[in-house]
Amino acid sequence: MPEITLVEAVTLALARAMAEDKEVVLLGEDIGVDGGVFRATDGLLARFGAERVFDTPLAEAMIAGLSVGLAAQGFRPVAEIQFTGFIYPIIDQILNHASRLRTRTRGRLTCPLVVRSPYGGGIRAIEHHSESPEALFAHIPGLRVVIPSSPRRAYGLLLAAIRDPDPVMFLEPTRLYRSAREEVEDTGEPLPLDRAFVLREGGDITFVGWGAMLKETLLAADRLEADGIGAEVIDAATLKPFDTETLFASVQKTGRCVIVHEAALTGGFGGEIAARLAEGALTSLLAPVARVAGWDTVIPGLRVERHYMPGENRILEAARKTLAFA
């Protein structure tokens, strides 16, 4: 079986979901004829036709609202927002409508909508094309937030997201689109939408992160291993709902935790994880919880981006400080 990239795994999952269920339709800007800016929908117009794959006008709020309407009628729309920087106009539709349809109708209507969007920085693409707004969405009750970090997880989690009866924000790390490769079997098997993944086991320190940051985190874990320190690396993958259980089990073992995300520190999802540890795992902790995150600045221009993104060295530095805490 050949290896495929993360973006190809997205295409594979979309094709699988569309083949299985006629109610799955795709809509977004330039997703049909052009196959999407990152080619995530490449070939799907040819395979499934213009009645399943819709090139929309440039109007994000409309794309989201239209999708809510389709979902309310039982369709399973998968909407693409071209870049996460373009996602903000849809917050009204997602927050005020998509996430509340089930509650408002006491379950008589649901909103099985997936919004996919390339996400995160590290590709020298400057603002609008590099942002990480996951915490904004994680704050919305009734909305799932999923971020895959490998082709297999992209495939399984996207299938699960499409089949899920509630709205899901599916944020795809742009930096990993073509750099992450592995064999993916097109089995149609979904992955759970409420479980974290332990990517590497270790007994001395726990790293928790998501998306492209895991690449840097795994490199930092390698460096620690060379020094005889065992680092456990957890891919949170589903921020909402967040798998507290897997994290607690790890921290009970290691007693030390470093949270890594590229979104700005203040109000980032790392704060939520730290709060959960304080509430439910305080007695297991041997050191204060550390956060390595983007700075509280606008995502910078291409020449200084590398100073913004948390990298292996910053992660390592935080880990050493955490490990040194008596």
Partner: peptide
């Protein structure tokens, strides 16, 4: 508009 011609968008 990117790759979408005016007659397909308006």
């Amino acid at each position: 508009g990117m790759g979408t011609s005016v007659d397909r968008a308006s």
